[in-house]
Amino acid sequence: MKKLLFSLIIIFLVFLGIFFYLRSRLQDDSVPLAESFSGEKVMFIFPHPDDEITSAGTLKLLDNEGIETSLITFTRGEAGSSNGMVTETDSAKRKLALGEIRFRELSAVGQLLGIDNQEILNFPDSDIKNLSPDSLKSIIRQKIARYQPSILITYDDVIGLYGHPDHRLIAQYTKEIFLAERGKSGFPVKKLYQVTLPKPMIETAMKISDSFKRNFGSGAILPTPTMAFKISKVGDFKKQAMLLHVSQRPTFNDMQPYFDKIPVWIYYRIFDKEYFAEVK
Rank of each mutant, 00 (worst) to 15 (best):
K93L: 15
S81I: 07
L106N: 09
L106C: 12
M85V: 06
H48S: 04
G57A: 11
L62A: 06
I72W: 01
S107F: 07
V31H: 06
R94T: 02
G57P: 09
A79Q: 10
G99N: 05
F103D: 03
G66D: 08
L59T: 01
R102V: 05
L62E: 04
T87P: 01
L71E: 01
F46Y: 13
D90G: 10
G57R: 00
S91W: 13
D51A: 04
R94A: 10
V42A: 03
A34I: 09
K95A: 15
F37M: 14
L98W: 02
L59W: 01
F46Q: 02
E40V: 07
F103R: 14
S82Q: 05
G66L: 10
E105V: 10
I101D: 00
S70Q: 04
M43Q: 08
N83E: 12
L106E: 05
V109A: 10
N83A: 14
L62C: 09
R25I: 11
K41F: 05
S55Q: 04
S91Q: 12
L61M: 13
S91L: 14
D50I: 05
S36F: 09
K95E: 13
A92S: 12
L71W: 07
Q27E: 12
K41N: 09
G66C: 11
P32V: 14
R102S: 04
S70F: 00
P32W: 15
S36Q: 05
L62K: 03
I101C: 02
R25Y: 08
P49A: 06
L33A: 11
K93R: 12
V31D: 11
E88A: 15
R25V: 13
E88W: 09
D50M: 03
V109T: 11
T87A: 09
G39T: 11
G80P: 08
I45R: 00
D50R: 02
D51Y: 06
V86D: 02
S81P: 03
F37G: 00
T58Q: 02
L26C: 06
L71C: 08
L98T: 02
T58P: 05
G99H: 01
S38C: 14
E88H: 13
T73D: 00
T69H: 03
A108C: 03
E78R: 02
D63E: 09
S107K: 13
K60H: 11
S70C: 07
K95G: 15
T89F: 09
I53E: 04
D90A: 15
E65V: 05
I67Y: 06
L33Y: 06
L98V: 05
L33H: 02
V109S: 04
L96G: 12
S91Y: 09
K93I: 09
E52Q: 11
G77V: 01
R104P: 00
L59Y: 03
V42L: 08
I53N: 03
G80M: 04
D28F: 12
E52D: 07
S82A: 10
T73A: 00
I45E: 00
L61R: 09
G84R: 03
V109W: 02
R25H: 12
E78C: 08
N64F: 06
L59I: 12
D63P: 01
S107R: 14
A97V: 15
I45V: 15
G99F: 07
G77P: 09
E65T: 07
S24H: 14
